[in-house]
Design a binder for these strands. Structure first.
Lengths: 181, 181
DNA sequence: ACCTGAACACCGTTCAAGT
DNA sequence: ACCTGAACACCGTTCAAGT
């Protein structure tokens, strides 16, 4: 990828578009941000965006990948911390994207490209969590089930407002119920 | 309420609107169902709907309440079954509404009336689950935390496709980790 | 009280045309 | 290859007018 000047320029331009789209999606929400608005912010005609992305959903996927790659940069900082810390970190990472997480789930049925991104994202996260649990001595099959549960808890906490002590209690209970004594 | 003929007629008409809207929302999704389409199905002008509901979101709330009251009718059939059965029942009840559940979460920030309905719904469900857990000998504070966890697991299972054995394993693990031995 | 026709301000997207 | 002006088919919603 990015073999020549052309591809590099393309990436640079896409990065610019996604940076602006990201900021607007996060502050106004996906539905609250029109393609028109994004284009205006960038100083281009609205249909220019369609030269880079086939649809608004594809632009969202670009934005999601952008966020993910930023999160991946910070991943090494918690890779050898205990499970509970890892979950708390994931919550903090995705907290600003709360609304986008909900948008992704709402658009699953309607958008193939969103569905693909979502499925791939879950496969990645579950594999990582399974790996962690196995390192802590949890059997393979059980680790897979617990990874799903852990994911649901993080998503639930993201979707619903809660106090710091609620979060703490849930993570504490989950990790001590999940891990061997 | 419904003190006189007028109010009764209003309820009847609203029930007719919500029945049609419900069917369309469930088959085409909320975003996939235009007010125009609902009106056409009913044989009225699109703006007629606005005499009964201030907005599309308020119509959705009507539909949600309709679904809820149908579910409440069936609630007594599982009221004395064990927790695991209760959760499996709730999953079956809400399974057809998967998409509406996601829509509610996605519209939380944008619609006050949806937010109110959502918060009230969660308060109701959590109170019911806490009551069940306390009857099973779980302490009050712990029951509140576990009720939240149980809700997140049901929502997670609703939002994400999964096999029957996955569901079974998750419910089994949760109920046996939550309840005193 | 209940419903309509016509319009409003927008939306995502397409297309032919420009450079 | 990249971008635009103009349009398309729709959207939720409003309003003045009818009965």
């Amino acid at each position: 990828m990015a073999k020549n000047k052309r591809d590099i320029d393309l990436k640079v331009k896409q990065d610019e578009l996604e940076s602006t789209a990201s900021r607007l999606f996060l502050s106004l929400g996906y539905d609250g941000t029109s393609m028109n608005r994004i284009a205006r912010e960038l100083g281009v005609a609205p249909n220019t965006l369609y030269w880079y992305y086939a649809s608004k959903d594809e632009l969202l996927v670009g934005v999601l990948n952008r966020q993910m790659s930023q999160t991946l940069v910070r991943l090494p900082t918690i890779v050898d911390k205990p499970l509970k810390e890892k979950m708390a970190w994931a919550l903090r990472e995705f907290e600003q994207s709360r609304e986008l997480v909900a948008t992704v789930h709402a658009r699953l049925e309607q958008s193939e490209v969103i569905r693909e991104w979502h499925d791939q994202f879950h496969r990645f996260v579950e594999a990582a969590v399974i790996h962690t649990l196995q390192a802590d001595g949890v059997a393979r099959e059980r680790a897979a089930m617990l990874a799903t549960v852990g994911t649901f808890l993080v998503e639930g906490l993201l979707a619903h407002p809660h106090s710091e002590s609620q979060r703490e209690a849930i993570l504490q209970w989950f990790t001590e119920s999940a891990l061997p004594a």
